[in-house]
Design a binder for these strands. Structure first.
Length: 587
DNA sequence: CTTTTCACAGTCGCGCGGATGGGA
DNA sequence: TCCCATCCGCGCGACTGTGAAAAG
């Protein structure tokens, strides 16, 4: 894969780091050889990370808690014994509504938790994540709480190049943002859901020679808020499970005084403050974690009782905080996928001037037209360049065809894809060994099943473009970040699986196609369909990304240009997003 | 030299107000 | 004629990455 090659240097570095820092999968659950195994991205990635069933009663929570520093970094010690813990199932969070100690920062926060895998080496920290299948009793026997990272494929795209997140004084939103689906909660029990961002490793990082390298020790004395409470907290389990939970408005800042005013507020009010920002430090690697904390209905009665809490960690959510992007690959990914950066996308319309007739005919789903997008001997004399970049395509496979794009516009395909899902148990390591880096996108490699879900029609208005609709589904999800235009809930009842011609069974599919397919898991079908119908000609057009470079240098590597194939690949994939899929644990 | 800050241009969604059309 | 609902256009604010300047 060109993309893989282009990112190999960085990836290998990242791989090493991740191996050292944030192993995400139990070693005995995945075979060696899988590139991402060391990257902490094993097959468990579609899952909540490691639900342990332990429910330690901890007389001295602090003794369990690996965060001994005031800063509450995730890594715990000199031996690198553990960094992030995949899932920490605890039951010792003081229960009086939302734990007030949270307001005091991570150090105190942590005291309320215990970690199921607090002992052992770093890999054990993630052991629980390996299966991710184990039922977790959150508020009662038999309940299974599971968390799915909705936009995981997009996260993986960034993770491949080492995700960077801009931090600014006024606060910058994350992109991709965190978006989860939760299942297995008690319908009537109230929960607080919040995200905490903790140091992922004890290093200070710098971008040198085109890759991220460690550079001294992290400053773990950083003060500031590390928690973002979901604005809808607290709420019932039914509410949280109704649809995806997005943290699109979560902002990152390097301004330590960003929440100074908030600190004057009562604790609970502070966490409900919708403009809360998380204070991070530039050039440090962080790991977001999702917390689900049960809120007793009767605070007074339960004052002496313990709250139940869970922490979910997805290694692919790791990122390095920066004040300016270092890796141009990351920049390009952000531009490609973040709708707010649309202005930086150079598409066909801006690159070339087409006559109206050229623009309007043939129709967007006409293959002939699509083939005309990049005329031979393209203007700008870019043909050689296009060819070159096609082979170098970092993000997309070059194998996709226009017919796919067209095909998916046809209703029968839509219907078929709407029910994409397979329920294939992992048969053995050999299959995994065959899986390349993203091969585990294939559901056939997952130890759990995929099931379709009823279509959702809540807004994804930021993604009118079908490609974006697919790629970023879940990014600008329905909840939190942008107003929901549909209030009806998402029934989580599983639907019968009817598997059509699905990509998971097509070994010829590129990994990115699979990526998109998986992205589709949380895509809203209706908007995507509409978008396809009203697809602008430009969506089929060449996308050339110029990078700080005079025209005289056209053709150099400084210009990243992706042809219509790639773009339509996205469109095609987006069409696959017409289905609304869910992953669920096989039991 | 590296990192951070800031102004900038571009895109988008939202909200407001005016225009329009239908019904009482 | 009046009232109400809907549609449309415009302005504003939020948000983005860029690139130069400032800071360390």
């Amino acid at each position: 894969m060109p993309g893989e090659e282009s990112g190999s240097v960085l990836s290998s570095q990242s791989q090493v780091d991740d191996e050292k820092v944030s192993p995400g999968v139990c070693e005995d659950q995945l075979p060696s050889g899988g590139r991402y195994i060391l990257d902490g991205l094993g097959s468990s990635r579609y899952f909540m990370m490691g639900a342990t069933q332990q429910t330690h009663e901890n007389p001295n929570p602090c003794s369990f808690f690996p965060y001994t520093s005031q800063t509450g970094s995730v890594y715990s010690g000199s031996e690198g014994s553990r960094y992030t813990t995949s899932l920490h199932y605890g039951s010792v969070l003081p229960s009086s509504g939302f734990c007030p100690s949270l307001c005091a920062g991570r150090g105190e926060f942590g005291t309320g938790y215990q970690f199921g895998h607090s002992s052992g080496d770093a890999y054990h920290s993630y052991q629980g994540s390996g299966s991710g299948i184990g039922p977790v009793s959150l508020s009662g026997v038999g309940l299974r709480s599971q968390v799915y990272l909705c936009n995981r494929p997009l996260w993986l795209k960034f993770h491949r190049h080492q995700t960077e997140m801009i931090i600014t004084k006024q606060g910058r939103r994350m992109f991709p943002f965190l978006s989860f689906n939760i299942t297995g909660l008690s319908l009537t029990t109230h929960y607080n859901v919040f995200v905490e961002i903790v140091l992922a490793d004890p290093n200070h990082w710098r971008f040198q020679g085109g890759k991220w390298v460690t550079c001294g020790k992290a400053d773990n004395n950083m003060q500031g808020n590390k928690i973002y409470m979901h604005p809808e907290s607290p709420n019932t389990g039914a509410h949280w499970m109704r649809q995806e939970i997005s943290f699109g408005k979560l902002k990152l800042t390097n301004n330590k005084g960003a929440n100074a005013n908030n600190s004057q507020l009562p604790n609970v009010a502070m966490f409900l403050y919708h403009k809360q920002m998380i204070v991070l430090q530039s050039l440090h690697k962080y790991q977001p974690r999702l917390h689900i904390v049960e809120v007793p209905d009767d605070v007074i009665e339960s004052a002496g009782r313990e709250s139940k809490s869970q922490i979910f960690t997805f290694p692919e959510n790791q990122f390095i905080a920066v004040t300016a992007y270092q890796n141009t690959d990351i920049t390009q990914l952000k531009i490609d996928h973040n709708p707010f950066a649309k202005g930086f996308r150079d598409n066909y319309d801006s690159m070339y001037t087409l006559t109206e007739r050229e623009r309007l005919t043939p129709s967007p789903n006409d293959p002939a037209r699509a083939q005309n997008i990049v005329p031979p001997g393209a203007r700008f004399a870019m043909q050689p360049f296009l060819q070159e970049t096609r082979t170098q395509s970092r993000f997309y496979s070059s194998e996709r065809t226009m017919t796919q794009t067209n095909g998916v516009l046809s209703p029968p395909v839509d219907d078929a894809q709407r029910w994409l899902v397979t329920s294939v148990q992992q048969t053995g390591p050999s299959k995994l060994e065959l899986a390349a880096y993203e091969g585990d996108y294939s559901s056939s490699l997952l130890p759990y099943s995929l099931k379709s879900l009823p279509l959702q029609s809540h807004s994804l208005s930021y993604y009118s473009e079908p490609a974006l609709a697919s790629v970023t589904a879940g990014c600008w999800g329905s909840r939190g970040s942008y107003p929901r235009k549909m209030t009806s809930g998402l029934p989580w009842s599983p639907r019968p699986t009817d598997f059509g011609d699905e990509p998971t069974s097509d070994k010829e599919k590129s990994r990115d196609e699979l990526t998109f397919t998986q992205t589709a898991a949380w895509t809203e079908s209706a908007p995507a369909l509409r978008a396809l119908d009203s697809m602008e000609p430009s969506i089929y057009s060449v996308v050339c990304k110029r990078r700080k470079l005079p025209h005289s240098e056209f053709g150099s590597d400084d210009i990243k240009c992706e042809d219509s194939e790639n773009l339509n690949k996205e469109s095609s994939s987006s069409s696959r997003a017409l289905g609304y899929y869910a992953f669920y644990a096989s039991t």
